[in-house]
């Protein structure tokens, strides 16, 4: 009996150590979460960017349903990664909108440069007293530039793919 106890205690210790020392070194969890986020850096989750939100999820100070641009798909992917149940998007943080990019109505722009610092991806070009413009291919559609504009010359335009990027779809029953 004693022998068995010692034997199993040893086995248990062995397993414990094996779990600790032979742990597969994957990417840190925060990186994995960050990779699933849409990277719009829009801050709708109340964190200053996607990476901080990912950190907050790791620290368990944020839920996985706070990302409106990612929508249900991102929530599902996060739930899958973290092994938790999916949940509907928390409406408090906003709704999932169709992809769009910011567009500056150029005749209205007064060149105040106020929209440039909020842009998380440096997608707005312009200088003081000069007309500004949005580089559409870099814009993530975060809408952070809209509020600072004193003349409301920035609008969101839905992103309709040109025929060259159009894809077939089907409705599975």
């Amino acid at each position: 009996m004693l022998f068995l106890c010692v034997f199993f205690a040893l086995l248990g210790l062995g397993l414990g150590y094996a779990a600790r020392y032979l742990k597969v070194q994957g990417e840190p969890l925060v990186e994995q979460i960050d990779a699933l986020l849409p990277q719009t850096q829009c801050g709708q989750c109340k964190y200053p960017g996607c990476r901080p939100y990912a950190q907050a999820i790791v620290d368990e100070t944020a839920e996985i349903n706070q990302c409106p641009p990612g929508g249900e798909e991102t929530i599902a992917a996060l739930a899958n990664l973290l092994g938790v149940a999916t949940q509907p998007l928390n409406a408090e943080f906003g709704e999932t909108n169709a992809p769009a990019v910011a567009f500056i109505i150029e005749q209205d722009c007064i060149g105040c440069v106020k929209c440039i610092p909020p842009c998380p991806v440096d997608a707005i070009l312009g200088a003081s007293k000069q007309m500004h413009t949005v580089i559409a291919s870099e814009c993530t559609g975060c809408e952070l530039c809209i509020a600072p504009c004193p003349v409301d010359c920035i609008i969101m335009r839905p992103l309709a793919p040109p025929p060259g990027q159009w894809q077939w779809t089907t409705h599975h029953d």
Binding site: D34, L37, P38, Q39, T40, Q41, G49, C50, R51, P120, V121, D122, A123, E138, T140
Partner: peptide, 12 residues
């Protein structure tokens, strides 16, 4: 697109 946005954000 997300990768690009992430890179630009990190640079900023």
């Amino acid at each position: 697109q997300a990768q690009l946005a992430k890179k630009r954000y990190q640079n900023q």
